[in-house]
Write a protein that binds this DNA or RNA. Structure first.
Lengths: 197, 197
DNA sequence: CCAAAATTCAATCAACTGGTTGATTAGGTA
DNA sequence: TACCTAATCAACCAGTTGATTGAATTTTGG
């Protein structure tokens, strides 16, 4: 997907535990929201003492930062299965949307947590910084495809690449806030956009 | 805007105080998010003792319910100024979108709080119930306009009313999650949709 | 096999949380 | 005056929170 300089530090000993903690945190955020997140609950879920958790993440904030990075990394690196190599901009966009829809369908919690984090980013600088840079990269990625698609005639000549880029992102993020939208309905909405452009 | 049977009980004595508390709560949610909401802060903002706050709202949950109802009521009852009477479905839709965009521009905190509440509705039944029924009413409202617009030829014949209804809602809600989208950009996105349909 | 390093834990802390208590005030009424 | 009620408050409570500590246990490398 779009580039993202995910810090890929050397593999450490305690990294499995660290991943385990982050994964449990993600599950709990999806379940109870950011509000209801308690490190004691996380520790209990993993099956460790809360002091052990503090051994891996000095503070709750640092744990959240780990969560943000992990979520972003998962979102950009997950591919929908059975995808074929796109041969033109329209197929590129479809492949990308297919990747996202696949995740909305199969790991919806990932999107719920993303929503929680985006909300939190309104009040917390560290989270905001990471997510904003991701947003910019995502938008550029989309704009690039759309511009090429417009110039090749794959897409409607009348569309504005930047606006449609924002549109797609707002749509996908907004799906979390659409209370009774099933994955099928979300997919239909995306199909509608695909058809119109 | 779309109908919403807002319980309009008789005006009580303490209703001004109640409104004052809710208004302060909305401001604080917009500022610090649902996570950071503390009844002590609310009481302090209003300039009353926290026991007095509990006199008006038995529990924090009941206060949140009051906030949900107020936000929803404000969202559906606010009109953009200078609006003219729409004479066809396309103008109806434009008028509606104009009402929403007006609020995104002039009372953005209202949308931020709506986002927070929508997120919370994933974990709290009472909030979910209110917002879900509002969502359904909103969707029906949009679908009705779009269907009429399609049949009169105002809109593209190929669009699916339900999908486009969802699309518009997801777009507007998602605008809160689009980290660096200015009101101008959001307006451009909406204009793009208007143009395509 | 042993000492050092890495992990784990029970117990504890200060700060904070939503909520309660009992008393006080001001205004109205009979 | 005596009484009632709505509104307000300072003080307090029990439970929770993120974080810390020091000791115990396990793992690792030589």
């Amino acid at each position: 997907m779009f580039s993202q300089n995910q810090a890929q530090s050397e593999i450490q000993q305690g990294d499995n535990r660290r991943r385990e903690i982050i994964s449990a945190t993600i599950a709990l955020i999806a379940q109870k929201g950011m509000e209801g997140l308690r490190i004691r609950d996380i520790a209990e879920t993993v099956g460790i003492n809360n002091a052990t958790l503090h051994y891996y993440f000095k503070t709750k904030e640092m744990l959240i930062e780990g969560v943000v990075n992990t979520i972003v990394h998962e979102l950009v690196s997950t591919r929908s299965p059975g995808a074929t190599q796109p041969t033109n901009p329209r197929e590129e966009l479809e492949a990308h949307l297919s990747d996202i829809l696949y995740q909305i369908r199969h790991t919806p919690q990932r999107f719920v947590v993303l929503g929680e984090l985006l909300m939190r980013s309104h009040h917390e600088q560290a989270v905001h910084a990471i997510l904003k840079s991701t947003d910019k990269a995502w938008h550029s990625f989309l704009v690039d495809i759309i511009k090429r698609g417009v110039s090749t005639g794959d897409f409607n000549k009348d569309i504005d690449a930047s606006s449609v880029g924002h549109l797609i992102m707002m749509l996908l993020k907004g799906s979390t806030l659409q209370l009774d939208a099933s994955p099928d309905e979300i997919e239909a909405v995306i199909a509608q956009v695909n058809q119109l452009m």
